[in-house]
Design a protein around this nucleic acid. Structure first.
Length: 275
DNA sequence: ACTTTAACCTGAACGC
DNA sequence: TGCGTTCAGGTTAAAG
């Protein structure tokens, strides 16, 4: 479901509620949720830990506990919420793990498609062993540098769309925002990265920053099923220029937006504006 | 070694 | 209404 702006929004919402609370109990209803950790000691590590803060890195959600990092990836449909014991913010059928908190509230994770993952690592090993260990920079605050992205682009023999979706290159961009970024940068999604000009690479960086920043301000895009915390809807879906606009006129040139498949993902772009 | 595809799952939307 | 098909804010094991 969520890309960087949506995960950031979830982190912000949870960070209003969770810091200072302690995890006093928990139950996992989906064994495959617990990821990478070889030992079956997830609850041994997490129980009795105080939650210090919640943040994101790319599409990963990080619960900073006293002695551990609990790292969640929502994949397509994962959702976190905090509610009273008897209130289910989302469909109870999709509840996958829950934690009882020290204030008598319940932290719950729902995931209809069961793609999501949850890991727990100590504060040192997570940098080397968790899902966030191989991620590239977040495309925010003038990252990545031109030199970094140019070097990566030359090295690879891939189309620019899957290149930007590769979380090892940059992290946090997903299918909505890559479509929007490439439209803003006027680059066709099937361009091979090594053919990109310096100006095109600079524009990709510039618009990655601008679009993700704007989407964070608007609390993400609510299409399909995404909602943050308490069923809060984002507003960036109203800003989309190409995504989900098949056959509708391009806002720049009025030609119909094309939908194709690139790298197995639905791809929307303007053949006139993007070269 | 690198790139592309299939698989992981479920539910909603669509066509007949 | 019912049934089959297609598609979905993602990642990764397997195949090419």
């Amino acid at each position: 479901m969520p890309e960087l702006p949506e995960v950031r929004t979830v982190a912000n919402e949870l960070n209003k509620i969770l810091p200072g609370l302690r995890i006093i109990n928990g139950e996992n209803f989906m064994p495959k949720l617990i990821w990478r950790n070889k030992e079956n000691d997830f609850f041994d590590k997490v129980l009795d830990q105080k939650i210090i803060s919640v943040q994101n890195y790319g599409k990963y959600l990080i619960f900073n506990l006293e002695n551990f990092k609990m790292i969640s990836h929502l994949r397509m449909e994962g959702k976190w919420s905090v509610s009273s014991k008897d209130k289910y913010v989302y469909n109870e059928k999709h509840l996958r793990i829950e934690f009882e908190l020290s204030n008598n509230e319940w932290l719950r994770y729902y995931d209809s498609r069961k793609f999501g993952t949850l890991e727990v690592w100590d504060n040192k090993s997570y940098l080397k062993e968790s899902g966030i260990s191989n991620l590239g920079p977040e495309p925010l605050n003038n990252n990545p540098s031109f030199e970094y992205l140019k070097k990566a682009a030359i090295k690879k023999n891939v189309k620019v769309k899957p290149f930007l979706l590769d979380q090892k290159v940059v992290c946090g961009i997903g299918n909505i925002y890559v479509n929007e970024i490439l439209f803003a940068a006027k680059v066709a999604p099937d361009r091979i990265t090594k053919t990109l000009g310096d100006k095109e690479i600079k524009n990709i960086i510039k618009f990655s920053n601008l679009i993700l920043t704007k989407a964070i301000e608007l609390k993400g895009s609510s299409i399909h099923s995404y909602k943050s915390g308490e069923n809060v809807e984002g507003q960036f879906q109203n800003e989309l220029k190409v995504h989900l606009r098949e056959n509708k006129p391009c806002f720049e040139c009025k030609k119909p937006i094309i939908k194709t498949q690139i790298g197995g993902r639905g791809t929307y772009f303007c053949t006139e504006c993007q070269k």
